[in-house]
Write a protein that binds this DNA or RNA. Structure first.
Lengths: 191, 191
DNA sequence: CAGACATAGTTCGGAACCGCAAGTATTGTG
DNA sequence: CACAATACTTGCGGTTCCGAACTATGTCTG
Protein backbone atom coordinates (compact mmCIF):
# COMPACT_ATOMS: atom_id res chain seq x y z
CA UNK A 1 0.00 0.00 0.00
CA UNK A 2 2.52 2.62 1.19
CA UNK A 3 -0.27 5.13 1.59
CA UNK A 4 0.04 8.82 1.86
CA UNK A 5 -1.93 8.79 5.06
CA UNK A 6 -2.28 5.92 7.44
CA UNK A 7 -5.64 5.01 8.82
CA UNK A 8 -4.65 6.59 12.13
CA UNK A 9 -3.77 9.87 10.45
CA UNK A 10 -7.10 9.90 8.67
CA UNK A 11 -8.95 9.46 11.92
CA UNK A 12 -6.99 12.37 13.33
CA UNK A 13 -7.93 14.56 10.36
CA UNK A 14 -11.55 13.65 10.86
CA UNK A 15 -11.26 14.72 14.45
CA UNK A 16 -9.78 18.03 13.36
CA UNK A 17 -12.36 18.68 10.66
CA UNK A 18 -15.35 17.55 12.65
CA UNK A 19 -14.16 18.43 16.12
CA UNK A 20 -16.98 20.88 16.69
CA UNK A 21 -19.75 18.87 15.08
CA UNK A 22 -21.66 16.56 17.38
CA UNK A 23 -21.19 13.13 15.85
CA UNK A 24 -21.22 9.55 16.91
CA UNK A 25 -17.57 8.84 16.47
CA UNK A 26 -17.38 5.27 17.62
CA UNK A 27 -19.95 4.13 15.10
CA UNK A 28 -18.36 6.26 12.42
CA UNK A 29 -14.98 4.67 13.02
CA UNK A 30 -16.46 1.19 13.12
CA UNK A 31 -18.37 1.57 9.87
CA UNK A 32 -15.67 3.35 7.95
CA UNK A 33 -13.07 0.84 9.06
CA UNK A 34 -15.29 -1.98 7.86
CA UNK A 35 -15.17 -0.46 4.41
CA UNK A 36 -11.50 0.34 4.57
CA UNK A 37 -10.73 -3.20 5.57
CA UNK A 38 -13.07 -4.70 2.98
CA UNK A 39 -11.47 -2.65 0.22
CA UNK A 40 -7.93 -3.44 1.27
CA UNK A 41 -8.66 -7.14 1.64
CA UNK A 42 -10.47 -7.31 -1.66
CA UNK A 43 -7.60 -5.62 -3.46
CA UNK A 44 -5.11 -7.97 -1.89
CA UNK A 45 -7.11 -11.02 -2.94
CA UNK A 46 -7.79 -9.73 -6.44
CA UNK A 47 -4.12 -9.08 -7.00
CA UNK A 48 -2.93 -12.40 -5.65
CA UNK A 49 -5.00 -15.57 -5.88
CA UNK A 50 -7.82 -14.31 -8.07
CA UNK A 51 -5.54 -12.71 -10.61
CA UNK A 52 -3.75 -15.95 -11.38
CA UNK A 53 -7.10 -17.47 -12.39
CA UNK A 54 -8.23 -14.28 -14.16
CA UNK A 55 -11.28 -14.09 -11.95
CA UNK A 56 -12.91 -10.87 -10.86
CA UNK A 57 -14.05 -10.52 -7.28
CA UNK A 58 -17.68 -10.77 -8.26
CA UNK A 59 -17.04 -13.75 -10.48
CA UNK A 60 -15.33 -15.51 -7.61
CA UNK A 61 -18.11 -14.69 -5.15
CA UNK A 62 -20.71 -16.08 -7.54
CA UNK A 63 -18.72 -19.27 -8.01
CA UNK A 64 -18.25 -19.52 -4.26
CA UNK A 65 -21.94 -19.17 -3.51
CA UNK A 66 -22.90 -21.80 -6.05
CA UNK A 67 -20.11 -24.06 -4.84
CA UNK A 68 -21.21 -23.86 -1.21
CA UNK A 69 -24.89 -24.33 -1.86
CA UNK A 70 -24.72 -26.64 -4.86
CA UNK A 71 -27.45 -26.05 -7.41
CA UNK A 72 -29.09 -22.75 -6.67
CA UNK A 73 -31.78 -20.62 -8.24
CA UNK A 74 -30.45 -17.47 -9.79
CA UNK A 75 -32.43 -15.01 -7.70
CA UNK A 76 -30.91 -16.46 -4.52
CA UNK A 77 -27.44 -16.47 -6.02
CA UNK A 78 -27.76 -12.79 -6.79
CA UNK A 79 -28.92 -12.04 -3.29
CA UNK A 80 -26.20 -14.09 -1.60
CA UNK A 81 -23.57 -12.55 -3.82
CA UNK A 82 -24.85 -9.07 -3.08
CA UNK A 83 -25.53 -8.09 -6.71
CA UNK A 84 -28.67 -7.42 -8.72
CA UNK A 85 -30.35 -10.05 -10.87
CA UNK A 86 -29.52 -8.15 -14.01
CA UNK A 87 -25.85 -8.08 -13.14
CA UNK A 88 -25.92 -11.77 -12.33
CA UNK A 89 -27.20 -12.57 -15.80
CA UNK A 90 -24.10 -10.95 -17.26
CA UNK A 91 -21.63 -12.38 -14.77
CA UNK A 92 -23.09 -15.86 -15.19
CA UNK A 93 -22.66 -15.54 -18.94
CA UNK A 94 -19.02 -14.67 -18.50
CA UNK A 95 -18.49 -17.64 -16.21
CA UNK A 96 -20.40 -19.94 -18.56
CA UNK A 97 -18.26 -18.82 -21.46
CA UNK A 98 -15.23 -19.93 -19.48
CA UNK A 99 -16.78 -23.31 -18.83
CA UNK A 100 -16.95 -22.87 -15.07
CA UNK A 101 -20.69 -22.60 -14.59
CA UNK A 102 -23.77 -24.06 -16.20
CA UNK A 103 -27.33 -22.93 -16.33
CA UNK A 104 -30.17 -25.43 -16.03
CA UNK A 105 -33.88 -25.10 -16.32
CA UNK A 106 -35.92 -26.13 -13.33
CA UNK A 107 -37.61 -29.51 -13.92
CA UNK A 108 -41.04 -28.60 -12.58
CA UNK A 109 -41.18 -24.79 -12.62
CA UNK A 110 -40.29 -23.52 -16.07
CA UNK A 111 -39.77 -19.99 -14.88
CA UNK A 112 -36.77 -20.81 -12.77
CA UNK A 113 -33.16 -21.03 -13.79
CA UNK A 114 -30.66 -22.92 -11.69
CA UNK A 115 -26.91 -22.48 -11.61
CA UNK A 116 -24.38 -25.23 -11.00
CA UNK A 117 -20.63 -25.54 -11.30
CA UNK A 118 -19.26 -27.58 -14.15
CA UNK A 119 -16.65 -30.23 -13.28
CA UNK A 120 -14.05 -27.66 -14.35
CA UNK A 121 -15.61 -25.18 -11.98
CA UNK A 122 -15.59 -27.67 -9.14
CA UNK A 123 -11.98 -28.44 -9.84
CA UNK A 124 -11.05 -24.78 -9.93
CA UNK A 125 -12.73 -24.06 -6.60
CA UNK A 126 -11.23 -27.11 -4.97
CA UNK A 127 -7.83 -25.84 -6.03
CA UNK A 128 -8.45 -22.15 -5.50
CA UNK A 129 -10.27 -21.99 -2.22
CA UNK A 130 -7.46 -23.31 -0.03
CA UNK A 131 -5.19 -20.65 -1.53
CA UNK A 132 -7.87 -18.06 -0.93
CA UNK A 133 -8.18 -19.26 2.64
CA UNK A 134 -4.42 -18.95 3.12
CA UNK A 135 -4.73 -15.27 2.27
CA UNK A 136 -7.62 -14.92 4.68
CA UNK A 137 -5.22 -16.20 7.28
CA UNK A 138 -2.61 -13.72 6.15
CA UNK A 139 -4.89 -10.71 6.38
CA UNK A 140 -6.13 -11.91 9.77
CA UNK A 141 -2.60 -12.24 11.06
CA UNK A 142 -2.93 -9.34 13.55
CA UNK A 143 -5.88 -11.02 15.26
CA UNK A 144 -5.77 -13.52 18.06
CA UNK A 145 -8.02 -16.50 17.63
CA UNK A 146 -10.54 -15.18 20.12
CA UNK A 147 -10.46 -11.78 18.48
CA UNK A 148 -11.21 -13.20 15.06
CA UNK A 149 -14.20 -14.98 16.51
CA UNK A 150 -15.38 -11.87 18.28
CA UNK A 151 -14.96 -9.82 15.11
CA UNK A 152 -16.95 -12.31 13.07
CA UNK A 153 -19.63 -12.42 15.69
CA UNK A 154 -20.06 -8.67 15.90
CA UNK A 155 -20.26 -8.34 12.15
CA UNK A 156 -22.75 -11.17 12.03
CA UNK A 157 -24.94 -9.27 14.45
CA UNK A 158 -24.78 -6.16 12.29
CA UNK A 159 -25.74 -8.10 9.18
CA UNK A 160 -28.58 -9.84 10.95
CA UNK A 161 -29.80 -6.52 12.26
CA UNK A 162 -29.81 -5.04 8.77
CA UNK A 163 -31.53 -8.07 7.31
CA UNK A 164 -34.22 -7.79 9.93
CA UNK A 165 -34.70 -4.05 10.18
CA UNK A 166 -33.02 -2.34 7.25
CA UNK A 167 -35.99 -2.19 4.95
CA UNK A 168 -38.30 -0.81 7.60
CA UNK A 169 -35.70 1.75 8.52
CA UNK A 170 -35.45 2.93 4.94
CA UNK A 171 -39.21 3.14 4.71
CA UNK A 172 -39.37 5.19 7.90
CA UNK A 173 -36.61 7.49 6.71
CA UNK A 174 -38.27 8.50 3.52
CA UNK A 175 -41.70 8.79 5.06
CA UNK A 176 -44.25 9.86 2.48
CA UNK A 177 -41.89 11.04 -0.21
CA UNK A 178 -41.00 8.19 -2.53
CA UNK A 179 -37.40 7.73 -3.53
CA UNK A 180 -36.44 9.94 -6.44
CA UNK A 181 -35.62 8.02 -9.60
CA UNK A 182 -32.02 7.67 -10.50
CA UNK A 183 -30.52 10.07 -12.96
CA UNK A 184 -29.78 7.19 -15.26
CA UNK A 185 -31.95 4.27 -16.25
CA UNK A 186 -34.43 3.24 -18.84
CA UNK A 187 -37.35 5.56 -19.43
CA UNK A 188 -40.95 4.67 -20.00
CA UNK A 189 -41.97 4.59 -23.64
CA UNK A 190 -44.53 7.31 -23.22
CA UNK A 191 -45.67 9.46 -20.36
CA UNK B 1 -33.12 -7.74 3.02
CA UNK B 2 -35.51 -10.65 3.65
CA UNK B 3 -32.88 -13.02 2.32
CA UNK B 4 -33.30 -16.56 1.31
CA UNK B 5 -30.56 -17.63 3.65
CA UNK B 6 -29.47 -15.82 6.73
CA UNK B 7 -25.83 -15.37 7.46
CA UNK B 8 -26.05 -18.10 10.08
CA UNK B 9 -27.49 -20.55 7.58
CA UNK B 10 -24.74 -19.75 5.14
CA UNK B 11 -22.10 -20.47 7.73
CA UNK B 12 -23.77 -23.79 8.40
CA UNK B 13 -23.76 -24.66 4.70
CA UNK B 14 -20.08 -23.83 4.53
CA UNK B 15 -19.46 -26.18 7.41
CA UNK B 16 -21.39 -28.92 5.60
CA UNK B 17 -19.63 -28.39 2.28
CA UNK B 18 -16.18 -27.97 3.69
CA UNK B 19 -16.47 -30.15 6.76
CA UNK B 20 -13.77 -32.53 5.63
CA UNK B 21 -11.38 -29.95 4.20
CA UNK B 22 -8.75 -28.62 6.56
CA UNK B 23 -9.37 -24.90 6.61
CA UNK B 24 -8.82 -21.98 8.90
CA UNK B 25 -12.40 -21.34 9.78
CA UNK B 26 -12.08 -18.46 12.17
CA UNK B 27 -10.23 -16.34 9.68
CA UNK B 28 -12.60 -17.41 6.93
CA UNK B 29 -15.60 -16.32 8.96
CA UNK B 30 -13.97 -13.06 9.95
CA UNK B 31 -13.02 -12.10 6.40
CA UNK B 32 -16.23 -13.19 4.75
CA UNK B 33 -18.29 -11.40 7.36
CA UNK B 34 -16.32 -8.23 6.75
CA UNK B 35 -17.44 -8.37 3.15
CA UNK B 36 -20.99 -9.34 3.98
CA UNK B 37 -21.26 -6.48 6.40
CA UNK B 38 -19.61 -4.01 4.04
CA UNK B 39 -22.00 -4.96 1.23
CA UNK B 40 -25.08 -4.81 3.41
CA UNK B 41 -24.10 -1.48 4.95
CA UNK B 42 -23.23 0.00 1.60
CA UNK B 43 -26.55 -1.04 0.13
CA UNK B 44 -28.40 0.40 3.07
CA UNK B 45 -26.64 3.73 2.76
CA UNK B 46 -26.97 3.87 -1.02
CA UNK B 47 -30.68 3.25 -0.79
CA UNK B 48 -31.31 5.76 1.97
CA UNK B 49 -29.24 8.90 2.43
CA UNK B 50 -27.16 8.74 -0.73
CA UNK B 51 -30.11 8.06 -2.98
CA UNK B 52 -31.85 11.25 -2.00
CA UNK B 53 -28.83 13.22 -3.22
CA UNK B 54 -28.35 10.99 -6.26
CA UNK B 55 -24.84 10.16 -5.15
CA UNK B 56 -23.15 6.85 -5.74
CA UNK B 57 -21.12 5.27 -3.00
CA UNK B 58 -17.85 6.06 -4.71
CA UNK B 59 -18.92 9.60 -5.45
CA UNK B 60 -19.72 10.10 -1.80
CA UNK B 61 -16.44 8.61 -0.63
CA UNK B 62 -14.48 10.91 -2.93
CA UNK B 63 -16.38 13.93 -1.67
CA UNK B 64 -15.85 12.79 1.87
CA UNK B 65 -12.10 12.40 1.45
CA UNK B 66 -11.72 15.83 -0.12
CA UNK B 67 -13.99 17.31 2.52
CA UNK B 68 -11.97 15.89 5.40
CA UNK B 69 -8.59 16.78 4.00
CA UNK B 70 -9.42 20.00 2.19
CA UNK B 71 -7.46 20.53 -1.02
CA UNK B 72 -5.84 17.28 -1.98
CA UNK B 73 -3.77 16.01 -4.88
CA UNK B 74 -5.66 13.54 -7.01
CA UNK B 75 -3.31 10.61 -6.50
CA UNK B 76 -3.85 10.76 -2.76
CA UNK B 77 -7.58 11.13 -3.17
CA UNK B 78 -7.65 7.95 -5.25
CA UNK B 79 -5.65 6.07 -2.68
CA UNK B 80 -7.71 7.24 0.28
CA UNK B 81 -10.91 6.44 -1.58
CA UNK B 82 -9.62 3.00 -2.47
CA UNK B 83 -9.97 3.41 -6.24
CA UNK B 84 -7.48 3.66 -9.09
CA UNK B 85 -6.42 7.01 -10.39
CA UNK B 86 -8.02 6.22 -13.72
CA UNK B 87 -11.33 5.70 -12.02
CA UNK B 88 -10.91 8.90 -10.08
CA UNK B 89 -10.57 10.90 -13.28
CA UNK B 90 -14.03 9.76 -14.31
CA UNK B 91 -15.63 10.11 -10.91
CA UNK B 92 -14.18 13.59 -10.47
CA UNK B 93 -15.61 14.57 -13.86
CA UNK B 94 -19.04 13.42 -12.78
CA UNK B 95 -18.82 15.35 -9.54
CA UNK B 96 -17.51 18.42 -11.34
CA UNK B 97 -20.41 18.28 -13.78
CA UNK B 98 -22.74 18.44 -10.80
CA UNK B 99 -20.94 21.43 -9.42
CA UNK B 100 -19.77 19.73 -6.24
CA UNK B 101 -16.06 19.49 -6.91
CA UNK B 102 -13.45 21.59 -8.65
CA UNK B 103 -10.13 20.75 -10.13
CA UNK B 104 -7.16 23.09 -9.81
CA UNK B 105 -3.74 22.96 -11.37
CA UNK B 106 -0.78 23.01 -9.03
CA UNK B 107 0.96 26.41 -9.12
CA UNK B 108 4.54 25.16 -9.29
CA UNK B 109 4.36 21.56 -10.51
CA UNK B 110 2.42 21.37 -13.76
CA UNK B 111 1.91 17.63 -13.46
CA UNK B 112 -0.23 17.84 -10.39
CA UNK B 113 -3.94 18.38 -10.10
CA UNK B 114 -5.66 19.30 -6.88
CA UNK B 115 -9.27 18.67 -5.94
CA UNK B 116 -11.41 20.87 -3.73
CA UNK B 117 -15.09 21.07 -2.88
CA UNK B 118 -17.12 23.91 -4.33
CA UNK B 119 -19.28 25.90 -1.91
CA UNK B 120 -22.20 23.73 -3.09
CA UNK B 121 -20.15 20.66 -2.29
CA UNK B 122 -19.31 21.97 1.17
CA UNK B 123 -22.94 22.72 1.79
CA UNK B 124 -24.03 19.30 0.61
CA UNK B 125 -21.57 17.51 2.86
CA UNK B 126 -22.45 19.66 5.86
CA UNK B 127 -26.06 18.65 5.34
CA UNK B 128 -25.50 15.06 4.29
CA UNK B 129 -22.87 13.82 6.65
CA UNK B 130 -24.92 14.08 9.84
CA UNK B 131 -27.62 12.01 8.14
CA UNK B 132 -25.02 9.55 6.98
CA UNK B 133 -23.70 9.35 10.51
CA UNK B 134 -27.19 8.65 11.83
CA UNK B 135 -27.30 5.57 9.62
CA UNK B 136 -23.89 4.54 10.83
CA UNK B 137 -25.42 4.60 14.28
CA UNK B 138 -28.38 2.58 13.05
CA UNK B 139 -26.25 -0.16 11.51
CA UNK B 140 -24.08 -0.25 14.63
CA UNK B 141 -27.11 -0.62 16.86
CA UNK B 142 -26.29 -4.20 17.90
CA UNK B 143 -22.90 -3.13 19.25
CA UNK B 144 -22.13 -1.87 22.70
CA UNK B 145 -19.92 1.18 22.83
CA UNK B 146 -16.90 -0.82 23.87
CA UNK B 147 -17.60 -3.37 21.16
CA UNK B 148 -17.72 -0.75 18.44
CA UNK B 149 -14.36 0.53 19.60
CA UNK B 150 -12.92 -2.95 19.69
CA UNK B 151 -14.28 -3.70 16.22
CA UNK B 152 -12.77 -0.53 14.79
CA UNK B 153 -9.49 -1.25 16.45
CA UNK B 154 -9.22 -4.80 15.13
CA UNK B 155 -10.05 -3.67 11.61
CA UNK B 156 -7.52 -0.89 11.90
CA UNK B 157 -4.88 -3.44 12.76
CA UNK B 158 -5.79 -5.51 9.71
CA UNK B 159 -5.58 -2.50 7.40
CA UNK B 160 -2.27 -1.42 8.88
CA UNK B 161 -0.93 -4.93 8.47
CA UNK B 162 -1.95 -4.99 4.81
CA UNK B 163 -0.50 -1.56 4.17
CA UNK B 164 2.77 -2.67 5.68
CA UNK B 165 3.08 -6.21 4.38
CA UNK B 166 0.60 -6.79 1.58
CA UNK B 167 2.85 -5.93 -1.32
CA UNK B 168 5.69 -8.09 -0.08
CA UNK B 169 3.27 -10.93 0.47
CA UNK B 170 1.99 -10.69 -3.09
CA UNK B 171 5.54 -10.64 -4.38
CA UNK B 172 6.41 -13.72 -2.37
CA UNK B 173 3.30 -15.50 -3.55
CA UNK B 174 3.94 -15.17 -7.23
CA UNK B 175 7.65 -15.84 -6.95
CA UNK B 176 9.27 -15.71 -10.39
CA UNK B 177 6.18 -15.88 -12.55
CA UNK B 178 4.82 -12.41 -13.24
CA UNK B 179 1.10 -11.80 -12.91
CA UNK B 180 -0.79 -12.66 -16.07
CA UNK B 181 -2.40 -9.69 -17.79
CA UNK B 182 -6.09 -9.16 -17.32
CA UNK B 183 -8.45 -10.41 -19.95
CA UNK B 184 -9.70 -6.89 -20.42
CA UNK B 185 -7.63 -3.76 -20.71
CA UNK B 186 -5.93 -1.62 -23.25
CA UNK B 187 -3.63 -3.24 -25.78
CA UNK B 188 -0.46 -1.89 -27.29
CA UNK B 189 -0.94 -0.17 -30.65
CA UNK B 190 1.47 -2.54 -32.36
CA UNK B 191 3.54 -5.45 -31.19
C1' DC C 1 21.63 21.47 -22.01
C1' DA C 2 20.22 17.31 -24.32
C1' DG C 3 18.80 12.84 -23.59
C1' DA C 4 17.28 9.47 -20.19
C1' DC C 5 14.46 8.53 -16.61
C1' DA C 6 10.75 9.38 -13.39
C1' DT C 7 6.22 11.00 -12.05
C1' DA C 8 1.21 12.55 -12.45
C1' DG C 9 -2.65 12.46 -14.74
C1' DT C 10 -5.70 11.12 -18.77
C1' DT C 11 -7.36 7.99 -22.20
C1' DC C 12 -9.05 3.78 -23.57
C1' DG C 13 -10.63 -1.27 -23.89
C1' DG C 14 -13.24 -4.49 -21.69
C1' DA C 15 -16.00 -5.70 -18.05
C1' DA C 16 -18.96 -5.02 -14.06
C1' DC C 17 -22.74 -2.70 -12.00
C1' DC C 18 -27.34 -0.49 -10.81
C1' DG C 19 -32.25 0.52 -11.32
C1' DC C 20 -35.76 0.46 -13.93
C1' DA C 21 -38.85 -0.60 -17.93
C1' DA C 22 -40.23 -3.72 -20.99
C1' DG C 23 -40.44 -8.32 -22.99
C1' DT C 24 -40.97 -13.46 -22.70
C1' DA C 25 -42.43 -17.39 -20.65
C1' DT C 26 -44.65 -19.97 -17.15
C1' DT C 27 -47.48 -20.75 -13.22
C1' DG C 28 -51.33 -19.95 -10.17
C1' DT C 29 -56.20 -18.49 -9.60
C1' DG C 30 -60.91 -17.13 -9.89
C1' DC D 1 -59.97 -19.16 -20.04
C1' DA D 2 -59.01 -14.42 -18.79
C1' DC D 3 -55.94 -12.33 -15.58
C1' DA D 4 -52.69 -11.65 -12.16
C1' DA D 5 -48.36 -12.95 -10.27
C1' DT D 6 -43.69 -14.66 -10.72
C1' DA D 7 -38.94 -15.38 -12.70
C1' DC D 8 -35.76 -14.35 -15.67
C1' DT D 9 -33.78 -11.75 -19.68
C1' DT D 10 -32.88 -7.77 -22.35
C1' DG D 11 -31.92 -3.15 -23.11
C1' DC D 12 -31.12 1.61 -21.78
C1' DG D 13 -28.54 5.23 -19.81
C1' DG D 14 -25.42 6.13 -16.88
C1' DT D 15 -21.45 5.16 -13.46
C1' DT D 16 -17.77 2.77 -11.80
C1' DC D 17 -13.73 0.06 -12.21
C1' DC D 18 -8.98 -1.73 -13.42
C1' DG D 19 -4.67 -1.42 -15.52
C1' DA D 20 -1.87 -0.66 -19.51
C1' DA D 21 -0.85 2.74 -22.88
C1' DC D 22 -0.23 7.35 -23.65
C1' DT D 23 0.80 12.44 -22.83
C1' DA D 24 2.79 16.04 -20.44
C1' DT D 25 5.77 17.64 -17.23
C1' DG D 26 9.61 17.60 -14.08
C1' DT D 27 14.27 15.92 -12.62
C1' DC D 28 18.56 13.93 -12.99
C1' DT D 29 22.95 13.23 -15.26
C1' DG D 30 26.68 13.20 -18.42
Amino acid sequence: MSGHHTIAETEKAVQAKLGAVPLHREQMAAVSNIHRAATAIRQHLENSVLRTSDLTWTGFVVLWVVWIWGEMETRYVAEEAGISKGTLTGVAKTLQSRGLLERLGHPTDGRLAVLRLTPEGEELMADLFPKFNEEEVFVSDPLESAEAQSLAEMLRRMVTHLEANGEQRRLDLRGDTPLPPRRSGRRAKHG
